[in-house]
Amino acid sequence: MTTMLTAAQVARGKQLLSAVQRGCNDVLLGQRELVDRCVIALCARGHLLLEGLPGLGKTELVKALGALLGLQFRRIQFTPDLLPGDITGGPILQEKNGQREFVFRPGPLFANVVLADEINRSSPKTQSALLEAMQERCVTVLGETHRLPRPFFVLATQNPIELEGTYPLPEAQLDRFLFKVEVPGVTADVMTNILMGRRRGEPPPQQPALAAGELDELFTLVDAIYLPTAVANFIARLVAATHPQRPEAPALVHKHVRFGASPRAAIAIGEAARAAALLAGRPNVDFDDVLAVLAPALAHRLVLQHSALVAGVTARALVEAVQAHVPAVGSPLPEAVR
């Protein structure tokens, strides 16, 4: 019989997450929702794609996460001439004991937290070099597979403007990201606080919020969060409703979606919902936890029709349509009762 987390364990997990939350909020002012989603993605051991205009603090947030988690942080600035070997590393000829041999030199990808800044500016060949690293958490060079350090996170950013000379991420690449989070702008009050508290825009120095081993403890607690059958069924129905071939899909999906989300999306939603439940102080996943992570986990996985672009229908609007169409409870009560 499955045993649920105790109240003390849940409280411990919430405490650890709150420490990370506080640190991120200190770095990125006025972006609590964004911070929550980032923390959830990290707890779920998922990769994160941040999309927003320049200057909103995306890079600073990622750097802060690395520092707060006490993990090794690397930054890769993706450019069009960046090659896969530049990020994965490669063998170099090295003389050793009078003999020359190829020695693998790890690239910047070998870190716990990798910031792939402006990832859409690199060529698809370079982008695809991340596929194995993100999914398998290992790199294969010249037939040799090298494991990446654990934990391994890819936190990528991309700019929605200045798209000339960029390479949109292929669907397979997007599917590897747990969340795609749009970074919103900040209000005038937040900007006032930034001006008053930051000199030259430098964030306050960050100390690790989690001690050694606490991150693993946090991962263990997230894994112990129970996902009820009814909630899992809810996730499955939501993902199924994104497929235009399915009768349960809403009309908007039938009209504007070309391909729906994959089972990997359902897994991602479940894992993210577990983290969200722990963040909310619950030993189990609730329907609301699923709804909280649905949009960032599902929107970037939908392949839209051209008609959606013409009509101005966004992926987020389609997810909202799916959410409104699929009830949390399997089926409503009979009409005889209310």
Binding site: T3, M4, A7, Y226, T229, R282, N284, D286
Partner: peptide
């Protein structure tokens, strides 16, 4: 109950607090 009842209905052993 935010999923606690369905968890109990699934047969999960609940801690006394829950």
């Amino acid at each position: 109950l935010h999923g606690l009842f369905v968890s109990a209905h699934d047969g999960v052993q609940l801690e006394p607090a829950w």
